[in-house]
């Protein structure tokens, strides 16, 4: 991938920066210039905000046929995640046995390598999600 193309999105890929519509308050990820609900009324009112770094699994799959650059980690889990504040995104799920994942499972964002331009090129980093760590002692 072209370096500037990845670089210009790192705020969202590192820190889940999305937008809040100044008109209706809806959160979107990734950032949008126009709110899908308010249309023209939202133009100029889309404020960049970091979104919640935890959510739940909406659906998932284990990828066995992986594209180039992802074959080193296959099979790997991919999911649609709904963040606590409502926005949805697509992410790998790590630190999770494919037998243990389920729709509705709580997950939280981590920071991992997404890929690289070969052995001597730029390394791309960003979010992958993992099962949420328990807030209290496990029983």
């Amino acid at each position: 991938m072209a370096i500037p193309r990845f670089w210009r999105e790192i705020q969202s890929r590192y820190n889940l920066v999305g937008t809040r519509c100044g008109n209706c308050g809806t959160l979107d990820f990734p950032p949008r210039d126009v709110c899908p609900k308010c249309g023209r009324k939202s133009v100029g009112k889309m404020e960049k905000v970091p979104l919640s770094d935890s959510g739940t699994v909406v659906s998932y799959t284990t990828i066995h046929h992986a594209p180039k650059g992802f074959d080193g980690t296959k099979p790997y889990l991919l999911a649609i995640v709904e963040l606590k504040d409502g926005a949805r995104l697509t992410s790998q799920i790590i630190d999770c046995d494919p037998a243990d994942i389920a729709i509705g499972m709580p997950v939280e964002a981590t920071f991992r390598k997404l890929g690289q331009d070969g052995a001597s090129g730029i390394i791309y980093y960003g979010y992958k999600f993992r099962p949420s760590l328990p807030a209290t002692e496990e029983t």
Binding site: I63, P67, L114
Partner: peptide, 17 residues
Amino acid sequence: EWETVFGATHAALHAMV
């Protein structure tokens, strides 16, 4: 930018459906 960068494939997206 927001699906395939993260390892999604055409088949994987349909698998999630």
